[in-house]
Write a protein that binds this DNA or RNA. Structure first.
Lengths: 245, 245
DNA sequence: CCGACTTTGTGCATCTCTTCACAAAGGCAC
DNA sequence: GTGCCTTTGTGAAGAGATGCACAAAGTCGG
């Protein structure tokens, strides 16, 4: 009878843990820059803004990389987390939609520094196509599929208006992309096996407003009635990345 | 013995629910624009990209606003969710750090449309101060506290480089702000009662890379060893919102 | 070589969130 | 009115994440 020795790094690191690994990585890089060679879970937890028990449990999912009585070797842990996150390889990223946000993303310094390389900028507006941004020439969205295949793009950032998002999404998936970062305020429908993460400024602000309201009053005005004459104004489809797409 | 009748809208809507309300709101606004007066939990769930049981449970935390056998009145539900989120009032927002991202945020159309009003733009760089962006003149960061108080700013968006983020954070909190949206890749330390939400492009990409790697190979290369000669390059403190602050 | 001290890794209890499944509620046709 | 049909609202079970608390493992000074 073969007893399975419970092995960390089995398969399946909890999502919540994966979401925190980049945080630890950043904290570790900060420590490394300050020349710190070893760190305890307690100190690293403070630097990353989490509870130390949680940090230890998270790291235990990767393996036993700490030394009891001492802590974690900063460089070694940086390497292990980077490897787990897939940052030891180079990822080609394409940005679709070169509006205000698309430009900001293209110029984002943190891209290059972490294994992500902007391999293409796309827009549907002829007025924008040809423009040079962050060392890249904006290409017409017509060439999306071929460029994705040719340059091995595996992650696409959608920064188009909401109305164009699904269409762009469908096209890049057809071209083989399975990881999408969506800045457009739209729900993307994708087949199984495709990962979508969304970033939405408007939603974040609304969540803050909720808590702010709770703090200010003791909750929203009591009474669930329709006030007379209320007309709820429709939300515009305005996108954070509302570009010329 | 006083039996508490479990009352929806008691106090305390689950965080997970609050985070989804803006999603429902957007979906409802889409339906309203198409002139739809009534919607079932099933249809609304599809439009919002969630499971219908979850949607119903979420809405049940606000109250009993549906009609069995029929569904939900679109306009009424829009109003109720808006009220719960505090969107029936006007929130003054200040943006600190007018780099690429700060500019994109200032020009973001979705701001105005939803009860959020940009009441001030700040930067520490004299070269940027005085510039006119989205109808507002950029002010020097020195005036942060007084402007916050004078204009009743209750939400601050931090789009500065990581190095300046904590300092800006401390200052706006001292000025009475208790809701912060942080785009700088830094962990902010705040006293109790202050809400911070963070948006970090780099983290989102790293999470995508993790899943992408899992899909591509059968996990990261086996073997936990340090490869010879590996030098882990330090992460630059490069911020999405790396501005001139 | 030993004993005191530090810090990890984890079993366990708890809490939160999700999902299922169905009784209760209401509309509608006749 | 009455009965059928649709859809909500929710109890309960399940899954996942969190945090405590401590045994095990390792360091270090003497």
């Amino acid at each position: 009878m073969t007893r399975r020795i419970p092995q960390a790094r089995e398969r399946g690191i909890p999502d919540a843990t994966v979401a925190r690994l980049p945080l630890y990585l950043r904290a570790l890089n900060g420590l490394a820059e300050r020349g710190i060679a070893t760190v305890s879970s307690e100190d690293l937890a403070v630097a990353a803004g989490v509870n130390s028990a949680k940090l230890r449990k998270d790291l235990s999912h990767l393996g036993s990389y700490g030394t009891r009585g001492v802590g974690y070797d900063v460089q070694y842990l940086i390497y292990q987390i980077s490897r787990e996150l897939g940052l030891t390889q180079d990822w080609a990223v394409a940005i679709v939609g070169v509006g205000n946000l698309g430009r900001a993303l293209a110029n984002y310094g943190g891209f290059v520094s972490r294994g992500f390389r902007v391999a293409g900028l796309f827009d549907a507006d002829p007025a924008v196509v040809g423009e040079r941004i962050a060392g890249l020439v904006v290409e017409h969205a017509d060439g999306l599929e071929s460029v994705i295949r040719k340059r091995g793009v595996s992650i696409v950032v959608i920064a188009t208006p909401a109305t164009a998002a699904q269409q762009v999404c469908d096209r890049v998936i057809a071209a083989g992309v399975t990881s999408i970062l969506n800045f457009a305020p739209a729900v993307l429908t994708v087949p199984d096996g495709v990962d979508v993460r969304k970033v939405d400024l408007s939603i974040e602000l609304q969540i803050l407003a909720f808590h702010e309201q709770r703090k200010a009053s003791g909750g929203p005005m009591m009474g669930d009635e329709w006030p007379d004459g209320v007309v709820v104004v429709s939300e515009r489809g305005a996108a954070l990345g509302e570009a010329s797409q």
